[in-house]
């Protein structure tokens, strides 16, 4: 016989668990979780958008100008704005998880979560600064 619990030969009828389709509306944290899952769609959109940009640039100046004009249309602007907000949300929640996933030690002492978190934000700021420098400095 295998270890663990013995299965009774017969059981009373149990009430199976049920999850309603709208379970994620029940609680703020569940809703935030669904939003974060949804944010992946917008991450994908930014990747696609970047690829479109690269293609436009590779096809010459006219194509690039056309891409810029298209990007300036209201629907695309709106879409990018929403995407941007979702990406911020995605990043912040991802960073929040980092101190718990990354356990780093200096000598015998664990690096405090705040430091790990600060490191992530510092990295983000540095990356953003480089991008800004490339764009504005050029």
């Amino acid at each position: 016989m295998s270890p663990g619990q013995v299965q009774p030969e017969y059981r009373q009828r149990v009430l199976p668990p049920r999850v309603s389709t709208l379970w994620w509306l029940g609680k703020g944290t569940y809703f935030a979780f669904i939003l974060r899952e949804l944010s992946c769609v917008f991450v994908a959109w930014f990747v696609a958008y970047l690829l479109l940009l690269v293609r436009a640039v590779s096809q010459g100046d006219a194509s690039y100008q056309e891409f810029l004009a298209w990007s300036a249309t209201t629907p695309i602007l709106l879409l990018n704005l929403v995407s941007f907000l979702f990406l911020i949300f995605h990043t912040v929640t991802f960073f929040d998880a980092a101190p718990r996933a990354m356990v780093m030690k200096v000598g015998r002492n664990r690096v405090p979560g705040r430091v790990v978190l600060a490191g992530h934000y510092a990295g983000w700021a540095a990356a953003s600064a480089i991008v800004c420098w490339l764009l504005l400095g050029a």
Binding site: Q5, Q12, V14, L15
Partner: peptide
Amino acid sequence: RNFPVVRDLIVDIG
């Protein structure tokens, strides 16, 4: 929540 209910407030954690 998420467990089969055996009786009243008792769930099966098998």
